[in-house]
């Protein structure tokens, strides 16, 4: 009566762990000094904003949706933050809190369109993407430097890991975001409803789950993490620029998928997304270590990985269907 004890939903994340392990080991053996605490800490720091954005994206993808607006929300957050603090002398912490609220509200509005009018998330968040990008360009076409002593101090803060290496603020926020996301996904009704909607929205409705409320929550959450990513990116670059974060949404989606979340929704784990981000980081760092390769090779390798993971997912979906209809 029972199928063999292989949990199909675990295959993609196992593949992610294996890929990360292999890449990391290969790079460590090939390049001197690659296997060091500093390189490891930098993997987190340099990709913190993308990872934070990817946490929100994971919820959208888990529900079978997508959020294309995140890259422009990062830019918009950065430019408003720099302008208010540098040019208008606003309180840095208050500004950051306000921007997080604004990002959440922006996501909520998109979520309402998706939930109440049954519009495809692709279209709604595409409109959101243009809106946020356009707004940031109206605010300023120039890059605005971020001038705040307090924020510079915050960005420099870090937990000492050894005599010379510290685990910096941005990385701490990334890890905290992943932990928070994992908790929401595993230990709240909202999180479980996201999985249910992603697997079968029809069944979720028939089971009496609050599908609309959950959808709004998903895009609100994604909006929150996008603006948090924007704040961290602004600290990281010490400036706001209207053209930053171009294509970030696609990098985030790639991280989510390479991290083992099914693009069709319903299956995936938040820690996988972190691994997906780190895999991209390892590839980028290895190419920098090499020194002779063009940095665009990163994209080619990521593209190939993405392709392999999509094939893997299709294969899993097919074998699951086969089992469902089987005897």
């Amino acid at each position: 009566m029972r199928a063999p004890n292989i949990k199909a939903r675990h295959v993609p994340i196992i593949a992610t762990v294996v890929v990360f392990g292999l890449l990391y080991a290969a790079a460590s053996m090939h390049f001197r000094n690659f296997f060091s605490l500093r390189v490891f800490a930098n993997l987190f720091t340099d990709n913190a904003f993308m990872g934070i954005v990817a946490v929100g994206m994971t919820f959208a993808v888990l529900s079978g949706g997508i959020d294309l607006s995140v890259g422009s929300v990062v830019a918009c957050t950065g430019i408003i933050m720099s302008k208010l603090i540098t040019q208008h002398g606003f309180d840095p912490f208050l500004t950051a809190a306000m921007l997080l609220a604004a990002g959440t509200l922006f996501g909520t509005i998109m979520g309402c369109f998706i939930a109440f009018y049954d519009l495809p998330p692709f279209i709604v968040t595409l409109a959101g993407m243009f809106f946020a990008r356009g707004s940031s360009q109206i605010i300023s076409l120039e890059s605005i430097p971020l001038k705040s002593d307090v924020l510079t101090a915050v960005a420099k803060f870090g937990i000492p890991m050894s005599a010379r290496v510290r685990f910096p603020f941005a990385a701490i926020v990334l890890v905290a975001s992943v932990l928070a996301g994992t908790w929401i996904a595993q230990f709240t009704k909202f999180g479980r409803n996201v999985y249910a909607i992603g697997d079968s929205e029809q069944s979720a409705v028939m089971m009496g789950l609050p599908v609309r409320r959950t959808k709004i929550g998903i895009y609100a959450l994604s909006g929150f993490f996008a603006s948090l990513g924007g704040v961290i990116y602004t600290l990281y670059t010490s400036a706001g620029y209207s053209l930053s974060g171009m294509g970030l949404e696609l990098d985030a989606i790639a991280s989510v998928v390479i991290g083992g979340t099914l693009l069709s929704g319903g299956v995936g784990y938040l820690p996988g997304t972190l691994l997906g981000v780190l895999i991209q980081g390892v590839i980028k760092t290895a190419i920098i270590f090499d020194g002779t390769l063009n940095s665009w090779w990163t994209k080619i390798i990521i593209g190939s990985l993405l392709f392999i993971f999509i094939l893997l997912q299709t294969w899993i979906a097919k074998s699951a269907r086969f089992r469902r209809s089987g005897p």
């Binding site: 595993q186 230990f187 009704k189 479980r192 697997d199 069944s203 089971m207 009496g208 699951a320």
Partner: peptide, 28 residues
């Protein structure tokens, strides 16, 4: 059958009506 195929049996039974611990998280 209107259930969620990729979730566990237990979760399908309790989806939407899960019990929670005193700290507010789902009591798996």
């Amino acid at each position: 059958i209107n259930l969620i195929p990729t979730l566990s049996v237990a979760e399908n039974l309790f989806l939407g009506i899960q019990p929670r611990t005193s700290s507010g998280r789902l009591d798996w």
